[in-house]
């Protein structure tokens, strides 16, 4: 994420004191120097509630990912129920696509788009012609 100039903020209902202990006791054993991003505390779940990830029964924030652009506008979000983790590759793909489009506003990144692949320029002439710039097997 640092290579993409994206600031990462990790948030849980743990206190900042617990974050310190976790960083020093466990994360620093897993990653040299510990996690490089700030660990934010949300003790009453109010931030989680604002982002609709707070679980009232478990009293924790579920796994949620929110991509926010330089203007503070939410561009992508994903919330996963308890037992499944996230996919960093998909996040990188989305960041690259949104960053590309923000610099090339007339274009759109179609399904499965990855950096370096062709984008589409939505225009009346493109209607019914998407298949021409579509590589076969893309949806298989």
């Amino acid at each position: 994420m640092q290579n993409l100039n994206v600031e990462v903020l990790a948030i849980s209902t743990d206190s900042h004191f617990t974050h310190k202990a976790w960083q020093e006791q466990e994360l620093s054993q897993m990653i040299e120097g510990g996690a490089p991003y700030p660990l934010l505390s949300d003790p009453d779940g109010s931030i989680g509630k604002a982002y609709n990830v707070y679980d009232d029964n478990l009293k924790v924030n579920l796994r949620g990912k929110f991509l926010i652009d330089p203007q503070g506008v939410l561009q992508a979000m994903e919330i996963l129920n308890e037992p499944v983790g996230r996919n960093m590759d998909e996040l990188v793909r989305q960041v690259e696509a949104f960053q590309y489009i923000s610099e090339n506003e007339e274009e759109a990144a179609p399904a499965g788009w990855e950096k370096g692949k062709q984008t589409l320029k939505p225009a009346p002439g493109l209607v019914g012609k998407v298949h021409e710039s579509w590589s076969k097997g893309e949806l298989e």
């Binding site: 903020l9 989680g48 949620g64 929110f66």
Partner: peptide
């Protein structure tokens, strides 16, 4: 930390259940 501190940059918020 405020989210507004990151105005002008791309940011990702990661919520997770707990340390």
């Amino acid at each position: 930390v405020s989210l507004s501190d990151y105005q002008g940059q791309w940011a990702v918020l990661f919520f997770y259940p707990g340390d």
